[in-house]
Design a protein around this nucleic acid. Structure first.
Lengths: 402, 402
DNA sequence: CCCACATTCTTAAGCTACTGAACGAAGTCC
DNA sequence: GGACTTCGTTCAGTAGCTTAAGAATGTGGG
């Protein structure tokens, strides 16, 4: 009889992601690869690689780029043409809208930042996308579409409390459809945390074998989770509510209606509120409790700057918040057997020097003692643009696999 | 230009699960279906359905079973032959080993329970599997293999603290390989919580559109999570450590090395310990603090029985535990946008009358107020065998799709 | 009874994406 | 210049589907 004890067996020629996608992904991850290497990595036959690569060369997605000597015939190396296909990523933040033009390799070709629009959202976005494309001087025919990142869910309305005024009332799907009509491009909408995770996955060359979570701090806290190379969007596309993981059973009430949510205890708004309530901390951070409040993200960044500069009260506030975040991060890591935690978004970009070590300390103990694994905690290298890049990556991905 | 705003578009003829699997799944879910209906449900062509069904009929997996009149030619209905292919599910519990023989439809054909073996684990298992098959009088050629459920991870060793003595030191993969050799069947190893989730998914006809979590209480607490019809096993197959979700940042130290873990605060062992520390509760449940301890699951069941019979101290203990479990459940639901929570395993089977309502209460508030979703909490109808059935289902699944 | 008509299922030809195996190409080493 | 090595391509299948046409099997009307 058989003696299989694990996964798939001989007939493992199971339906994978398709040759095109596998090959593009492998080259993107490795930078440059020969056809034989591709065959080895993807598990495809050399014949299949050869045929698929020829088509990719014809389409201009891939170019040959030198050769490496071997014992016999040298290998011809292949790389992606970064500008063969492009996509625009738009990141709708509270007070800034960031536009990014990205190519196949994930690099930012061109960037544009504007204050958040006050009037008609759609026409502003459409106009700015045009400006970005015109200013970068690329062939518009190569642009495949627009990825739109916002703090709300992929489809459905953003929660009122946490949403910048100019985005209130919008539904993700609706926004996508309307912008597609207004701008004349295919539009894909994504949540900011998920987009950030996709961006890291795409740009930072995280392999599909690593299960990872991108923790995102903007004016709230979210998590984008990628396992087996697939973004987890949950039942109705509303996954990633990291801010509403409970870290204190009977903690203070959260605006969501529950108790002890991470966001209520340790989110940027909670940190800012604590700083405003503490005159010493407010002074350190240069916050004026009387003044009209800017976004939580802005005030939070001020506190982080002060803490980094050595302000003790601000540092204490962040350390306190980090304790909670670390506990919630540990929950996620344990629940999903996560390998890699990436801190991203403006909040963590400003304060990772506190949150990173806190998470590592918390996860490290049980990690070594019990789970025999080793979780890596890193800080995104492109926290400011990761989301926008991720959204653009989703657009590219969806078109390139075909 | 295009106006795509969501998922895949025209070329949605994307590589799905394969006709065979789709068709079998559709019939299993619906009970009886005609070919046209199958085409509509699976999205395949009628031609493809026809061909695939013919092969399934030849293999005996599917049988025709009557017809329904229409305006024209009546439909021939198809159903699965429950006994066409079989698999054995083995559930290694602390003091009992349960064997289940399951067919294509998930029904239990035959069952066997034995005290946990004390001597050589493998030979006991192999012998009992033989007994089960012999006793049920089925054709051994129809049996595809054995699914083995244990409290440890799919591959890797079970954590010492939580493992019944006869399983200590085993590694999941090793156990599978060795049992395959000893019993002469292909063996697949799975964690009990994940297996329970698969069992629910398979038996209780949960559709792949629902993201669901099976919370499992045995001598510890775990969660099996299924999203998009796929079990989440995480980076190294160690996902589902629901018991080590943190519900109290600075809670008591857990044996895992961290603090405030659900299991340390509210797991069955914690509940039993609390009952032993409280003479009134111990008396209600008939626990003798001086006696040698049986498994936590057994003592916990005694407490649950007492509570159900009206014992106030025991009820209070469970209510207290349920508060924590509910908070952790809410975390999972929020993090992964879970639709459906199923309570299963001996612990929840005994005490669901407390835990079910507690989870519903906790999740319900924010659900209605903020998330505009509606999470269902149910109790498994076959909590005792769900795990074993699930493991058998995995074996069947892996063979049937080919 | 026989003939539209509706509907279900089957058959045949073709397409896509891959595999296997043989072969051509382009180097190195002696 | 020939043997050898390694890389890449070509060609003929094959699996699994699709599209398009047609066969089977019922209904209701004259």
């Amino acid at each position: 009889m058989g003696q299989v004890a694990g996964e798939a067996s001989p007939a493992s020629r199971r339906r994978g992601p398709g040759a095109r996608e596998s090959i593009l992904d492998a080259i993107r991850a490795a930078g440059r690869l020969s056809r034989v290497e591709l065959a080895a990595i993807t598990g495809l036959t050399e014949a299949a690689v050869s045929m698929t690569v020829r088509r990719l060369l014809e389409e201009g997605l891939v170019v040959e780029t030198g050769r490496t000597p071997t014992g016999g015939k040298p290998r011809t190396l292949l790389r992606l043409d970064p500008a063969a296909r492009l996509a625009v990523g738009v990141y709708l933040d509270r007070d800034t809208t960031t536009y990014v033009l990205t190519g196949q390799t994930g690099g930012v070709i061109s960037r544009l930042a504007r204050p958040a629009p006050t009037g008609d959202l759609l026409s502003h976005l459409a106009a700015d996308i045009d400006v970005l494309l015109a200013g970068s001087g690329v062939d518009r025919a190569r642009c495949l579409g627009v990825g739109l990142v916002w703090p709300g869910p992929r489809s459905g309305v953003a929660r009122l409390d946490d949403t910048p005024p100019h985005l209130r009332g919008w539904d993700g799907e609706q926004l996508g459809r309307d912008l597609a009509a207004a701008a004349g491009w295919p539009v894909l909408v994504e949540n900011n945390a998920t987009a950030a995770a996709v961006g890291e996955y795409w740009v930072a060359r995280v392999g599909p074998e690593r299960a990872f979570a991108a923790l995102y701090m903007g004016s709230g806290i979210g998590a984008g989770i990628i396992v087996d190379g697939r973004a987890m969007r949950g039942g109705h596309g509303g996954a990633g509510e990291f801010g509403h993981v409970c870290v204190l059973v009977d903690g203070p009430e959260c605006w969501c209606g529950s108790r002890g949510c991470l966001e209520a205890l340790a989110g940027p708004r909670a940190v800012v509120a604590a700083a405003l309530a503490d005159p010493a901390a407010a002074a350190e951070a240069g916050l004026d409790p009387g003044a009209a409040r800017r976004g939580a993200a802005t005030d939070f960044a001020a506190i982080a700057r002060a803490a980094r500069a050595g302000a003790p009260r601000c540092l204490a506030l962040l350390e306190d918040s980090a304790r909670y975040v670390a506990a919630a991060a540990e929950s996620v890591v344990n629940l999903l057997d996560i390998d890699l935690v990436v801190l991203t978004g403006p909040g963590f970009a400003a304060a990772s020097f506190v949150y990173g070590p806190a998470i590592m300390r918390r996860v490290g103990v049980a990690d070594a003692r019990t789970w025999r694994r080793s979780v890596t905690v890193t800080v995104s290298l492109a926290a400011a643009t990761a989301s926008a890049t991720g959204a653009a990556a989703l657009v590219l991905q969806s078109h390139l696999r075909r």
